[in-house]
């Protein structure tokens, strides 16, 4: 399953490497004794929307946490935009363009909606542009406008998900990672969130989408990886995976 190591001297492959925004090789992550991610390889190209699916406890969240810098990997390497990320602290990854909307959203319940959005832009120094982006987020999620001075803890689950996404976008990421954005949301809200994901992807942002709802994830993404027990067991074009028997049986209830 592992990608062969790419010889740096071979020009056509080097060309391909440049287009990879993120490349992970042999990533291993553990919690104490528990090995949650057991040496996985994958990559995300510039502007690509890639899905990572798999059942509960497969290690998807753990992978995202390692990419965001919240857990240090035990082994392997994370290459991002020509730099090795392994030792870069989480807060510095934000200004490098990496944003994670965590599982459970992680909005600051005691901060107002507006303050949450401003926290999203915390690492930026271009203050004039921040105001423009704020206006853009309110245009993208009109529901947040009337609630801007409300404490985020008083928002509904769907509104919190919108806020979490808007907050992540406020950092102007190049790589947006979403951990189960559809979790616990009503169908209409899921639709709205996925429309936004499509919209953002269409603007050229690279996206790594982790989803329980495999069908939705495969429909929206161009490529996908399937994770099982800490390893990547399948990968390919999302359309192919949607049609494959193995995926049908295991994740799509077909």
């Amino acid at each position: 399953m592992k990608c062969a190591t790419i010889p740096a001297s071979s020009p056509p492959i080097l060309e391909r490497r440049v287009n990879k925004l993120l490349e992970i090789s042999g990533l291993e992550v553990g919690y104490g004794g528990i090995h949650a991610v057991k040496g996985i390889d994958f990559h995300i190209g510039q502007g690509e929307l890639v899905a990572l699916i798999g059942s509960n406890g497969a290690g998807k969240t753990t992978t995202l946490k390692a990419l965001a810098g919240l857990i240090a990997p035990v082994g392997g390497q994370i290459d991002y935009d020509g730099r090795v990320l392994n030792a870069v602290p989480a807060h510095q990854r934000v200004s490098m363009g990496i944003a994670l909307v965590p599982e459970g959203r992680g909005v600051f319940a005691r901060l107002t909606v507006a303050e949450n959005l401003l926290m999203g832009a915390y690492s930026r120094r271009d203050h004039a542009a921040i105001d423009d982006d704020l206006a853009r987020m309110y245009a993208l999620f009109p529901r947040l406008v009337e609630r801007r001075d409300q404490l985020a803890g008083t928002l509904s689950g769907g509104e919190q998900q919108m806020l979490a996404m808007a907050r992540a976008l406020m950092s102007r990421p190049r790589l947006l990672m979403l951990d189960e954005p559809s979790m616990g949301l009503a169908p209409l809200m899921v639709k709205k969130i996925f429309e936004t994901i499509r919209e953002v992807a269409a603007q050229g942002m690279s996206i790594l989408l982790v989803e329980q709802n495999a069908r939705l994830a495969l429909q929206v993404s161009s490529r996908s990886y399937v994770m099982e027990g800490g390893s990547i067991t399948l990968s390919g074009a999302s359309a192919d995976l949607l049609g494959s028997d193995a995926v049908q049986r295991a994740y799509l209830g077909g």
């Binding site: 807060h91 934000v94 200004s95 965590p102 992680g106 926290m119 992540a168």
Partner: peptide, 9 residues
């Protein structure tokens, strides 16, 4: 954790 994800040291 969430603060770190915002770029807060």
């Amino acid at each position: 954790h969430a603060a770190q994800l915002m770029g807060v040291d």
